[in-house]
Amino acid sequence: MNVIRLLGIRDGALSVDEVFSAIGDHAAGGTTIFIGTVRDHDHGKPVAQLSYSAHPGAESELRRVAEKIVADFPVTALAAVHRVGDLGLGDIAVIVAVAAPHRDEAFAASRRLIDDLKSEVPIWKNQIFADGSTEWVGSCD
């Protein structure tokens, strides 16, 4: 059975239920789900909305990151989806989930998955602040 169950860069709303369903595994004693949402501030400035863009090769890079996690941790199932396009406050920008035999392994793999996704997958964030100014961020947050 494939351990990497769901990967994607999507231009529509993300579903926690879809991700949770994808990683269901009776061999797992621990399951973690991280949900990254659009917050109303960054570095002390009020944020009005975000817009994410992805390189055409972003999904391939996401797969490479997921394969590293599977090679380095004893996970039984893994999923990661990231949204692109315009997002408002409170919208879900990213979901990563890991199932593993034990909770420590699930937490460690999940943490590394989101950290590596943020640092290695070419997804860029354009923050639009309440005052109308904008800021590009080189990787997703």
Rank of each mutant, 00 (worst) to 15 (best):
T37Y: 05
H55Q: 13
S119D: 06
R5Q: 14
D11I: 00
M1E: 13
A106N: 06
L7W: 09
R83G: 00
P56L: 13
C140K: 00
A99C: 06
V16G: 00
L6M: 15
V3T: 15
T31D: 02
A99G: 11
L117I: 12
D91K: 03
K125M: 04
F129N: 07
C140N: 08
G85L: 02
Q127D: 11
D17S: 15
G36E: 00
L87G: 06
P74H: 02
D115K: 03
F107N: 01
A13F: 00
I69P: 00
S110W: 00
E105D: 14
S53L: 08
F107L: 05
A97E: 03
S53W: 11
L78P: 02
W136R: 02
L89R: 08
Q49N: 15
I69H: 04
H26A: 14
E67S: 10
A97C: 04
N126D: 11
L113I: 05
R10Q: 15
L14G: 08
P122N: 13
A108E: 02
E61Y: 06
G85V: 01
D72C: 10
K45F: 11
H26C: 03
A77M: 04
D115W: 12
H82A: 03
C140M: 14
Q49S: 15
R112Q: 15
R5Y: 02
A77V: 14
L113A: 07
D72E: 14
Y52M: 13
E105T: 04
R10F: 15
I123Y: 11
V94A: 08
K68D: 09
D17Q: 14
S15W: 01
S21K: 12
A58H: 06
A79G: 05
K68W: 03
R39G: 01
D42H: 14
V96G: 01
A109F: 06
G90N: 12
V94G: 03
L7D: 08
T32L: 03
V96E: 04
H26P: 14
V47T: 12
D131T: 07
S119E: 07
E59K: 05
L14M: 09
P74C: 03
V38H: 04
D104A: 09
T37A: 15
Q49M: 13
I92K: 02
T134F: 06
D115Y: 09
G30W: 07
F20C: 14
P74F: 09
R103G: 04
G88C: 07
S51N: 06
G132W: 07
A93H: 03
I69V: 15
S60Q: 14
E67L: 08
S110F: 05
I69C: 09
H82I: 10
R64Y: 03
E135L: 15
V70W: 14
L62Y: 09
R112C: 12
L113S: 02
V137P: 00
H41C: 09
G90T: 09
R63D: 06
P122M: 12
G90F: 00
I95W: 00
V70S: 13
R64D: 06
V70H: 11
R83D: 00
A28W: 10
P122F: 15
G8W: 00
A66H: 01
A93P: 00
D17K: 10
S51D: 11
V3C: 10
G88E: 10
V38N: 02
S51Q: 12
G138I: 06
W124Q: 07
A48E: 15
E135Y: 10
T134W: 04
D116L: 11
I23H: 01
A28Y: 08
F73P: 00
F129E: 06
H43W: 05
R83F: 01
D141S: 11
S53H: 13
